[in-house]
Design a binder for these strands. Structure first.
Lengths: 395, 395
DNA sequence: TTGTACGCGTTATCAT
DNA sequence: ATGATAACGCGTACAA
């Protein structure tokens, strides 16, 4: 307490007209020695700068102050239930720990325990908001479980095989890997016998490590809605087939449409506004026009709408549109766009749970997030052009 | 097993394998189920579950294999320039390191060096895409500088004072804090003499730690555009004034409009679609209507457009709209919306640089990112209703 | 040119 | 009920 080690830095307070209160700035190292009374441990090698201004308290400090051995302090502070401790010392230790503002050193602890308490989340640098939602769910759950999450970026082009992130575990920077990149990876890149890991929102090359959502269910909701309104010809405009979610959606759509006697047109496009625009334009030029279109990603939706607008195709009069990414902004568009709301946050949370289980030695096993999904009907869906009047045919 | 493992040590700082630049890591070693025979290390104690399947190689392993002392190995692998080493041993050490797939233990190294090599990025859980861009820039730069980034979520409601994240540094989980939450914090919560930190995209309670963008410059671009087209009455619809960027934009707008003789109406709203919608609706009801409106965030833009549409106000005929968040989707809207493109990624990068400088002992000092901004003119801007015909008056 | 010795802060396993 | 001791894996001043 009371180590006033602040240096007056003649602040380069260059920013517009803020009256510098000559506030105390930390960060500069002063050659001041600690005031009397404090044990001034001066074992900083000369020339180096301390990480934090005030000396952090260690177990040994507490031990010294209380007059017991470090190991005793350690046991008390870890609430070791095995041994019991004299209530008096117990209190004293807890008190001085509190008083000294003791914080366990995560590094030392991790080194000893051989567990870092960190998970690495590998995400692509995409604009799509699903990554933010996923990250959010993962973050929240990780905190609940006592882990921190470090983020690694995956280059969007040229995704690297999962094994390329193994070094994080090998270097003891993290206990496991959350691989949340969308692209499918060739079989041969499987992580066998590697670090603990799960694939998030896609299936990896090695089985038993997948945490995914119910894409077939999402497709089903789209088709239910289509059939409900009387559509017979469906389009699915989605990302490139190298993306695993796309792959699964398309597969499910093919099967389900066949089963229900619906015609299906699949269009692959880049997951961008531009991609959506082009694919829609091409789709409109060719053959028989579908009357309802599912769109894989939010960015594509904007392109799809623009293309339909430019082509003079009315939504929903001539074409219904449903997005597989939900976002609040959809409700505010020119024509409010219906969407399937997927449990992305829960996906992130489930992935964290699965990974921690793996770290703790649980056997492998795939996970499918089963939170309820909903199709939010908005202005962009309606019966097909030639259908009976307004109301839904079922009711 | 001729695998390129890049144990190669770069530079005097000895950042061995810190960048994930290594080609294939040892993790994926056994892609081929090894035909019986070779298979070196199967020394897992029965019953326990290994964190990582294969035993990690340590310095001492290499030392033993080569027949030298650990310290020698350490020096070689850290590229210690001071001492020179017999070329022969040097090679032998490097070879066996590579061969054993050696990875330095980041924990032990950090414990010794008193530097974790990690930065904590505190972000709010907001939908606004600016956070993703900022994070992206920070991530990229951090990797270049040999740091990893861990993410901490800040509860959106009830933001906590920056000091509440100090524990991350005190526990040696990170070397410094990137505080990227938008809300202004009361003076008394300043971090004095605390851990290294910078505020990103806002000014903190303690001076000399701010990394911000040129909001007045952005305002200037809006006004330049307005004047250029002949507008005399400007509106600024932005987030709540507790958000620091809003605070600065509004201040700059007030001053600049006064200086230029423009009338200014300021509307504060929640940074959501809904907020934008309501504020716009209220604005249209009251008093003299502005002819050009700057909008603080992307989400609000959707609400603004919807409100104008619902009120029958034509864009840009009766009202021009400019967004302060740039996003590709804006170009694809009903009326393509003009935007000021801010250097968010550079902001993230600059924040990382500033924080690392602080960690390394550099004196405090505010930073303003000076990357060029541009106003992207799109369909949503035009001369005001009563103006001279089409072309810009200046030319 | 290389080896010795010690410490970073904590925990686990012995003893006492 | 508590203390002593040995790691965990690495870095480094100093001795040889």
């Amino acid at each position: 307490m009371g180590i006033e080690r602040s240096v007056r830095v003649a602040g380069p307070l260059g920013v517009a007209g803020m009256t510098g209160e000559a506030g105390v700035t930390s960060g500069g190292e002063a050659a001041t020695t600690s005031p009397a009374g404090e044990h001034g441990r001066g074992d900083q090698p000369p020339g180096t700068v301390p990480i934090s201004a005030q000396r952090r308290s260690r177990l040994v400090d507490i031990a010294e102050a209380v007059g017991v051995h470090v190991s005793t302090v350690s046991r008390v502070l870890n609430g070791d239930p095995a041994q019991s401790i004299r209530p008096e010392v117990y209190e004293r230790i807890l008190d001085t720990a509190r008083q000294q503002g003791y914080r366990p050193n995560a590094l030392a602890r991790a080194l000893k325990r051989r567990r870092t308490g960190a998970l690495a989340l590998v995400v692509p640098l995409l604009r799509n908001p699903i990554w933010a939602k996923l990250q959010r769910g993962a973050l929240q759950r990780a905190r609940e479980r006592g882990y921190v999450i470090m983020i690694m970026e995956e280059p969007t082009e040229d995704p690297r095989p999962p094994a390329d992130y193994g070094y994080l575990v090998e270097e003891s920077r993290a206990d496991g890997l959350l691989l949340a990149t969308p692209l499918r990876i060739p079989e041969h890149a499987a992580v066998v016998n590697g670090p603990p890991h799960v694939y998030v929102n896609r299936r990896g090359p090695d089985r038993g490590h997948d945490v995914v959502m119910d894409e077939p269910g999402a497709i089903r909701m789209l088709l239910d809605c289509a059939v409900d309104l009387g559509h017979g010809s469906v389009a699915l405009l989605d990302g490139p087939p190298e993306v695993d979610t796309v792959y699964r959606r398309v597969g499910a759509a093919r099967r389900a449409c066949a089963a229900r006697g619906l015609s299906l047109a699949v269009r692959y496009a880049a997951p961008t506004e531009d991609g959506g625009y082009d694919a829609t334009t091409r789709m409109l030029r060719r053959g028989p026009r579908p009357t309802i279109c599912g769109v894989g990603s939010l960015n594509q939706v904007f392109g799809v709408l623009a293309a339909l607008r430019d082509a003079g195709v009315e939504v929903p009069g001539e074409m219904s549109v449903v997005s597989f990414d939900d976002d609040e902004c959809l409700a505010y568009l020119e024509v409010p766009v219906a969407s399937v709301c997927m449990p992305l946050s829960e996906l992130g949370a489930a992935a964290v749970d699965a990974l921690i289980a793996r770290i703790e030695g649980a056997p492998a096993g795939d996970v499918m997030v089963r939170e309820p999904m909903t199709l939010v009907r908005r202005g962009s869906v309606a019966p097909p052009p030639g259908a009976a009047v307004a109301a839904g045919p079922r009711e």
